[in-house]
Design a protein around this nucleic acid. Structure first.
Lengths: 227, 227, 227, 227
DNA sequence: CATGAATGAGATTTCATTCAT
DNA sequence: TATGAATGAAATCTCATTCAT
């Protein structure tokens, strides 16, 4: 990653041993994220993580007491990044329907671009969120989106552009679910339907569909036509 | 299944270990389904399956050459059951919107009542559907629902009760996704939101919401009001 | 162990794999006793125990969950054997002084012949008896000797052959200590004094000395001579 | 020792890490003594010693080539201190029985106050005194007590206050053993008897008992009473 | 002298699979 | 068919020691 650009003042060798604690820690975390995402907690191999990170096993245990702690550290990083990206998404100032469309598309794109996050979340659910529950840091990373959604829904209802009575949590679950499911289950769906769901046009089609489903749902209900 | 036909002529000893091959096989499969659902392929323990099934490890290897074959057998059984239940659902004769509402609710209920199926599907996706791809039997268990949906959508469009132009595959993915995501991710969602998504009233609320989202989407689009 | 007597119908080989659970367990225990006695809990190697016992590491973990549990099992066996041998020593019916001389010599001989017991007890003390405290079985293996000693001391005091006022616990500690110390510290003492404390005549001399020290102590105190 | 003489000329920086070589060495030795006493050679951790000493692992290897050398240095220091304290005990000029009582009480008190010495000696015996044997310095630290004892016994025998024929080595072993055993085995004894052997009154009682046992033994034997 | 990151050999433990009975 | 003891490869983890800074 751009390493080729720097002429590197050390003339001798490019030893992987960096003697830079933070850098090593991050290399381990990055490798671990990939490995845990690919294989899950049980299937991941510490050896592989060591190899991929350029560190050695000893270092992994030096920085992260054991495999589970390393897994938790990875989970925390992924969660934190996801929450941060949500906070970075400034959409509340948009007109209500535009704001929600923006959120829907953001969610879709985020899942599309972060397959590791999808897999880690999925894996964590398979083990009953036991590590999410255990981590104090993760407890603090609460969703703020639902509250934001609530405000937007109320604004839309007042303006008459959004039907009233929409539960923001249900809406949030539907927004997430419509995209998450698509990516999380792409492998079996692709196999079952014999169509490549990851192809660019398939993605575009799904993205549009999801937005339409959500926006249709929010449309104010038509009064029965007067005769 | 078929085991009930044999009158069991062994009059002499009543060995606690059932000398009934098919029954043993089924006990193993049932225990394996639970274990694989709980822990995934990598996390599942052959020892545990032996213990839970009341059989022993030797039997497992006798009936199913190895752990992966046993896993595939479990997967096949779960898929077959799911497809069968879909075939058993006679809904095509209903009025189009009723038919779709029935399907949506059926999917929701099926996932609600078959957590093991959810987990196995999820696990299979985490390993890129590699066993689904490998199994010939599983390839035959194709979805017929999409085709049925297509017919219903067309009928609804003709009758004017369903908007035209709805892609049956996208619709199917949305129907599945809205429910599947809820159950598959219940653990992390429950933790993140501090609300028990498995509580009876939470289930009822979600079920109604999902149906409403889908049916809102299918509503024929209002023509721009005439002046 | 008498195995040579059976002509063994299996003509082929004398495989060490015995398929006899109890025998294997005992072989492991015996090998572990030696290894733990020689190296202590921390210094002992599971590999060595496996090799010496003719079993393999898997078996050790099959029978004794982990190294510590194996250590505890060894400790329990050694303690139980020691307490049993004490119960087997019928000495209470002897005249009081004879009874005590018998006990002193028995203790000396037991320690002389059971170096592993000495080392295991010593090692356990080095780790603050943490496993002795943890084991329920070991808690039940209480000394009965102190009570027996108490009865003997009282009988001797009544008969005038033993001075009155002797504390049985202190006496027991002295009887044990005079012998135990000799064997437990033989290595450093031999080195410091340049004399082989394990030589037969050295043993005989110490045995006589210990008995004499204890019996001298029990002698009734002479009344001050009347003028 | 002797380090106090240097006025420390480094005026500039007050690095928290003491740039005083001898002081660092001593801090390491003190921490090592504790750790080796607590865990034995095999159980001790170089990491722990580094942490406890406030130094770091590099320093340990700088001053003491490896773990074993550090252990030997600790052992030498403990032995030297023990021998020195014995030399400091001026008791030969006392009346024979008083001299011996003094020695007995001194030994008891020394063991009571130096639990690390007890544990290191014990640990060294568990490993067959291999490091004691290996160290030249330790070979020079011979007991002189036995010779002193010999002179005292002879003086007492001449004076008629001590019975004749007492072997000074056996007596020394008994004096040491009666106290050493009590402290070395306090953990298991406390557990087995359910009494706290380290409590002040328990110590006082034991101290008096040990002295009485030894002095009883030395009492001149009564001639058979004349009729 | 001092630091603490890095190494690697070797330890404990796990677990799918085999096999004698 | 059934049992469960046995195996061994591979996994996790530990720790004395080295070394760049």
């Amino acid at each position: 990653m751009g390493a080729s650009a720097r002429p590197a003042p050390q003339a001798k060798a490019a030893k992987p041993a960096s003697r830079d604690a933070e850098a090593t820690r991050l290399r381990i975390l990055a490798a671990a994220e990939l490995e845990f995402a690919r294989k899950g907690l049980a299937g991941a191999r510490v050896d592989t993580i060591a190899e991929e990170s350029g560190a050695n096993k000893g270092m992994i245990y030096y920085y992260f007491d054991n495999k589970e702690e390393l897994y938790i550290a990875v989970l925390e990083r992924v969660y934190a990044a996801m929450r941060q990206s949500e906070r970075d998404l400034a959409f509340e100032h948009l007109p209500p329907l535009e704001a929600i469309r923006t959120l829907v598309e953001f969610k879709f794109d985020y899942f599309a671009q972060n397959p590791a996050a999808i897999r880690l979340l999925t894996g964590e659910n398979l083990q009953d969120a036991q590590f999410l529950k255990r981590s104090e840091r993760l407890q603090d990373l609460q969703h703020s989106l639902v509250e934001t959604l609530d405000r937007i829904l109320k604004a839309g209802a007042s303006a008459g552009t959004i039907r009233s009575g929409v539960d923001p949590l249900q809406l949030y679950l539907s927004i997430s679910g419509l995209s998450f499911f698509y990516f999380a289950n792409a492998a079996t769906l692709t196999t079952s339907f014999g169509r490549d769901l990851a192809a660019p046009d398939a993605l575009a089609q799904r993205r549009a569909h999801v937005a339409e489903v959500i926006l249709s749902y929010l449309r104010p209900v038509q009064p029965p036509e007067a005769p």
